[in-house]
């Protein structure tokens, strides 16, 4: 607590915390749907595209967020289309696109400004990267993402669980897929400044994977992911401040710890249940 108070006395850290908490929350909520739909890799692909776009923006002196948000949204559309066309395996297509985007970004960078701290911070993240304007934009977009997610919660559940059924009952499935992709794209661009292109996808997949170890209901997983992501982010930032480790990497490590703890808890619960069944002579009925 003392540590947190000390951290909050630096304005740039307050900004980073405020922006980061909102972005982690968005990422974790969308992540539940993405992970369950086997879309985990899309987050990774989009973050590389976002890196490419940011490099171009820096090289030509444009505003980084204003360039990369539209580019990544377009990339998200594109990745979904590949998936539904089905001529090329989508994981291969995503791997290809992310490599190309990364390569394009690196070439443009080396031809113009060279590897500045700016570009390196997009790669690995930096808490100093959040300007006042970034934070304002993050807050607005995050609130938008959260609002849409809450309003569409039931439809997102239906579309995630069973697209064909949802379509047969008259839900506009492609619209919701696009919505999820766009929200993901926006979240990734916002989170990338702090977490870095290499690590941002962890904000999306870790909280939901961790929650799925323990919780049995969709609602439980969603709520737990939201809480976990914020808690892990704050602890990660505190660790980063205390031990001077990079912020993004610290948050990932805290997420890993949470995952291991939840897995262990799940294991213990299962063992207990199995023991009880043995006690009642039902061991043979275990699957």
């Amino acid at each position: 607590m003392e540590l947190l108070r000390e951290m909050l006395s630096y304005p740039f850290l307050v900004r980073a915390l405020a922006g980061g908490i909102l972005v982690s929350l968005c990422a974790s909520l969308l992540g539940v749907s993405l992970v369950l739909k086997r879309y985990s890799m899309i987050g990774d692909g989009l973050s590389h595209v976002s890196f490419g776009a940011l490099s171009f923006a820096v090289a030509f002196g444009w505003s980084p967020l204003r360039v990369s948000v539209p580019v990544v949204v377009v990339a998200a559309f594109f990745l979904l289309r590949i998936r539904s066309n089905g001529k090329m395996k989508s994981d291969a297509a995503i791997a290809m696109i992310s490599a190309v985007a990364l390569a394009a970004g690196i070439i443009v960078t080396s031809m113009t400004t060279g590897m500045t701290t700016d570009v390196s911070s997009y790669m690995f993240g930096s808490i100093l990267a959040m300007s006042k304007e970034d934070v304002r934009l993050s807050v607005i977009l995050s609130v938008l993402v959260l609002g849409l997610f809450l309003i569409c919660y039931n439809k997102i559940f239906a579309v995630t669980f069973d697209e064909n059924f949802a379509r047969a009952t008259g839900v506009n499935v492609s619209w919701y897929n696009v919505l999820i992709a766009v929200l993901t794209a926006v979240t990734i661009v916002l989170g990338m400044r702090m977490m870095g292109a290499m690590l941002i996808s962890s904000l999306i997949i870790f909280p939901s994977l961790t929650s799925m170890r323990v919780f049995k209901s969709f609602r439980g997983v969603v709520i737990s992911s939201g809480i976990l992501s914020v808690v892990c982010f704050v602890i990660g930032m505190m660790a980063s401040y205390r031990y001077s480790t990079p912020a993004g990497a610290s948050v990932v490590m805290v997420n890993l710890a949470a995952f291991l703890i939840f897995s262990a808890a799940d294991y213990v619960v299962r063992m207990n249940r199995a023991d009880k069944k043995v006690g009642h002579g039902l061991a043979g009925k275990e699957e």
């Binding site: 039931n154 069973d162 439980g220």
Partner: peptide
């Protein structure tokens, strides 16, 4: 998929809601 039976069954009611987001 982590979802309870109740959640899955309830999702069948979706088309009854039209554009209203909640059950």
């Amino acid at each position: 998929f982590p979802a309870t039976v109740r959640e899955v069954v309830l999702s069948g009611c979706l088309s009854r809601r039209g554009n209203w987001p909640f059950y």
